[in-house]
Each structure stands twice: as C-alpha cells, then as structure tokens.
C-alpha cells in the first residue's frame, strides 16, 4: 500500500497540518529519519511568509515616505505626534517581545510557570500597546486629523493601522496557543506552531522599530 493513496494514519489528528516531504506516511509528532528536521522546514516556510509581510509593510512605508510632506495645509507630524506616548508604546512592544522569547524557552523546557506567565505578560503588554494606539487614533480623529484630512494622514493611518491590525491578530493567535498547550500539552506539532507565533511576534517588533524611528522620531525631529 502506497502512502499516497492511503488515508492519513492516526497522527494527523493533531489538527490538519499539511505533511512536509512528499509521500512519507509520517505521523505529525515524529521527526523524519533523514533530511532537515521538521521544525527547521516549518520555520523556514513561515519565515518566507514573514518576509512577504515585511515587503507589504515596505510598500505602505514607501507611500508614506512619498506623501509625508503632502499635508494639504493641515496638521503635520510635528503637531500630532507625542513622543512620551510613542516611547510607552515602544517599551510595551519591546518587553512583550522579550517575554515571548521567554515563553518559547518555557515551552521547550516544559515549565508551566515560565510558559504561561510569559505568555500572559506578552498578552498584557501587547494589549496595552493596542489600547494606547487606539487612544492615539481616537484623539487624532477627534481633533479633525483623521485619515481623510490629507494624503499624509491617509498614508499614516494605513501604515500604523496595518501594524496595529497585525498586533491585534497576534494577540488572538497568542490566546489560541495558550489554549492549545493547555489542551494538548507540549507536543512537537504544538511547539512548532509556537515557534511560528514567536517568529511572527518578533517580526512585528522589528517593523515597529522602523515605524517609531522613521515615522514618529523623524516626524518630530528638529530640522
């Protein structure tokens, strides 16, 4: 019986991940006997997605860079951006990315306190970040500086809002990963998903570095 025609063996019960490496009837929780380990292949594939995500952000970033002077006599970045708020957002995201790393260590060492504690800290800090950003957006829109005011503000809301959406989606994913580890334990496939989540979260912080430096700080810097 060839693996290609056979129904998946019991190992697929782990949630419908596609199998890597054609035709081997490989249970999801096992490592292949030869070739690179599955976690390396999975991380590589997810890394390709993350790079495409970075390219998406660079397109939004390019449009912001082109339009940043097109304020249509409306408010400029210097009028709108508040550095203490941005510093707080930056601190939240940086700390949450470190806690996310701790959570990965906790999952590998199978230490519940380290894993759940770090994941909870990551979630709280990420949620504070989103809350601050929403408050910032609400204040700006309330002051008549919404995305419809000028091309500069359209590009600003698209760029920062896209990052905020990514962080919000990451928060949902984070809760899912906590629940999956709670329900299924530190299985190999669950740990691979956790690895992908950690890569996603770290990448969001890298994108935020570009945003706070080149959007907010350059926007308010003396010139």
């Amino acid at each position: 019986m060839s693996a290609g025609t056979e129904a998946f063996p019991g190992g697929v019960a782990g949630g419908g991940l596609a199998r890597v490496g054609g035709g081997h009837a490989q249970a999801l929780t096992e490592e292949p006997a030869h070739g690179p380990s599955k976690r390396i292949v999975v991380a590589y594939g997810f890394w390709i997605f993350l790079i495409s995500d970075i390219i998406l952000f660079s397109a939004l970033f390019a449009s912001y860079a082109v339009l940043s002077e097109a304020t249509a006599d409306g408010p400029t970045g210097r009028d709108l951006f508040e550095l203490p708020t941005v510093a707080l957002e930056t601190a939240c995201l940086l700390l949450s990315t470190v806690f996310c790393g701790f959570a990965g260590i906790g999952a590998q060492a199978r230490r519940n306190t380290l894993y759940y504690g770090s994941m909870a800290a990551t979630f709280v800090l990420g949620a504070i970040f989103v809350a601050i950003e929403l408050h910032e957006f609400a204040t700006m829109i309330g002051a008549g500086a919404g995305p419809g005011r000028s091309a500069f503000l359209s590009a600003f809301f698209a760029l920062i809002g896209c990052h905020g959406l990514h962080v919000s989606a990451g928060l949902l994913w984070l809760l899912t990963m906590m629940a999956q580890v709670y329900a299924k334990g530190y299985r190999a496939d669950i740990r691979r998903r956790l690895l992908c989540f950690a890569l996603f979260w770290h990448t969001l912080d890298i994108i935020w570095v570009a945003l706070f430096s080149l959007v907010y700080l350059v926007g308010v810097a003396p010139r």
Partner: peptide, 30 residues
C-alpha cells in the same frame, strides 16, 4: 529618542540619517 528630542546633540540636517542608522542597528540586534 534622545537625538530626536534634543536639538543640541547632533547636527540637525543629519538627524534623519542618524535615526535610520540607529534603526538598522536595532533591527540587527532583534
């Protein structure tokens, strides 16, 4: 943040470039 908020430290026209370099360095650290 210090470079962006104080005008005395760096020659002003070079501030965007200084900030870009610092951002690149921090991305490398990450």
């Amino acid at each position: 943040f210090y470079i962006a908020s104080s005008s005395a430290l760096v020659w002003q026209p070079s501030i965007p470039i200084a900030l870009s370099v610092l951002a690149l360095a921090q991305m490398g650290v990450h």
